[in-house]
Structure formats: C-alpha cells, structure tokens
Write a protein that binds this DNA or RNA. Sequence first.
DNA 1: TTTCAATTGCAAACCGTTTGCAATTGGGTG
DNA 2: CACCCAATTGCAAACGGTTTGCAATTGAAA
Lengths: 152, 152
Amino acid sequence: MKNCAHKHSHQRQEMSALTGRLRQQSCKITGPRAAILEILRQHPHPLTNKEIFASLPKGGCDLATIYRAMQLLEKLGMVKRFDFGDGAARFELVGEGDDGHHHHLVCTRCAEVVEIGECFPSEIENRIARANGFKAVTHRLEFFGLCPGCQT
Amino acid sequence: MKNCAHKHSHQRQEMSALTGRLRQQSCKITGPRAAILEILRQHPHPLTNKEIFASLPKGGCDLATIYRAMQLLEKLGMVKRFDFGDGAARFELVGEGDDGHHHHLVCTRCAEVVEIGECFPSEIENRIARANGFKAVTHRLEFFGLCPGCQT
DNA sequence: TTTCAATTGCAAACCGTTTGCAATTGGGTG
DNA sequence: CACCCAATTGCAAACGGTTTGCAATTGAAA
C-alpha cells in the first residue's frame, strides 16, 4: 500500500514549477490561480477556502473561484484535501511526485495544527483489507487533543 | 489512553435500559425519542439523520426533532458520532459504560460499511501526544476502499 | 387531574459548497 | 501584434446538511 516512511518535503515549491504543472494540463495561469497558489506556497498548513479568500491580496477573487480552483488543483494532485471534522475542507500544497498522505494533531480548543510524521501501520491496514476482501484501501486519520497552551 | 482491546458489544440493548438512561437525566421519554432509539437498536450500523428519518414508522417525527435527539443522545454518551467525510454525520448506539470508540471500513463505491476491531496503536498515539506536549489526545480513523462486490 | 418544564413541528435561517450564465481573458495562431 | 475561442471568472441563485425561534403540545411529577 502507501509508503508513509518518506519525509514530507515542505520546502516551498517554485512558482514556476506550479504554473508549469498547470500549463501541462492546458489550464490557464490566471490572476486568481496565481494568487491562490502563492498563498498556499506561503502557508505550509491546511487552509480552508475562506482562509485562502481572506489571505488574498485586496481585490482578490470570488469565493466561488477559490472553490473551483481547489477542485481543479485537487484533481491534478497538486493539493491534498483534509477534513478536521468541523465541516470545512482544508487544503495543503503537495510536492510533485508526493501523494501528500499524512496526518495532523489538532488542538480542539485553539485549532492549532501540528503535522504528524507517523502513519497507520500499513501491515495492519493490509491485514484489515485482506480480512474483508477490500482492495485499494486507504485511511483518513487525524488526532485531536489539547495543545500545551490550552491545558487550563 | 483509550483501551481499544475490548469487544464492541453489539448485543442489542434493552429498551428499558435506554429509556432509563434518559430518565436519569430528567429527559422525557417521548414518542419520537422512543421511535428513534428503536431504530438505532435495530441497526447496529452508523445511520445518518435522514436514514433514521426514513426508517421511522409512518407519521414519524420532524427531521429537526431527530437532529435534536441525536445531539442530546450524543451529549449523554448514548450515541457515538462518526464522520465518513461525505458531509453527513452518522450515529451508532453505544453500550452503557462503553465509549463507542471504534473504526470502519467503508466502500467508496457502494458505501457498504464494515466495523473494524483494530485501532490505532495507543503506544504510538501516546508518543505523538508526548512529543508535541498535547494532552487528552484521541483520534478519528476510518478506512476506505473497494468492497469485494465493487471491484470491477 | 392539574401543572409546568421539556419537547415538538414548522418555517426560516445558516453555512459550506456547487452551479448556470453572461461577461472576461489567457495564450496559441495567423 | 491583433485575433479568436476555449477556458475562466463574477455574480447570484440553488443546494444539502444542520440549527434555531417560537408558539403549540405533552410527559410525568405532585
């Protein structure tokens, strides 16, 4: 299955590399898209569409455009969608060749997010898949707790 | 942390035990609530509010009432909320004394759900918590894949 | 049976997300 | 460099799940 042992290279990707990936798919490099990619580049953390919207330079673009851009980027594998269970999707830029699979530790009080290197042991996942006859099994895993600052 | 080794006793709970738990909290045993508990008793699987609504005998109750009932039951720990990432919350009855913590394997095509006995190793969870100074750490974990019948 | 807080139904409000459509625009082409 | 058209955007309306205000209803304690 998935290999979770690799480092999640969070070194900022070059803008040219990002736009190149778009161009390869005959997608236009528009103002809104460039601005969105720039925001994602600057925030190595999962961002909601609304947060991206708020971070956009004045006169940014429509919220709907961000939703559409994130759908596109996700489909192209340039962005990974995360779900912290609060009803809002979050996105993180993914390195080329990487699948972006990793997990987070989220503070249930202040929403601080820490990226986690650990992953669910694939031997166990494989066993679960086999035991139930499932194929192409992945998992969604997030941790929740109280961060140092929020422990009363 | 959590003990994941116990069996998830899915033997149906007595209706009287359920209503008793409600009564203890000075909550009324109303028609809608009894009907909802009955549905949950009969379905040892995560159900959405809409599914509960649809399973209700004719002339059931308002959808809003179900939402309110599930909120109450969750607060009382009688029901556990699950999130399969499709935007709809799902609920399962929880045995008395149990915390209901467990996971599922969900078919991404037909939505079949299998309950999983395995859990994320608590030693690893503890290590993650300690390493980041977090307290009271839990996790949300679900598996997704193609069930035997959906593998083309 | 009386009584009152708890609960319900209904409709409107909310929130994140999607979509139809006309206007705009990137970027390959001549 | 001007042209052209498919790709993209803004805007507003629609959507699906969930919540809420309020007046009417109802358990169950006394």
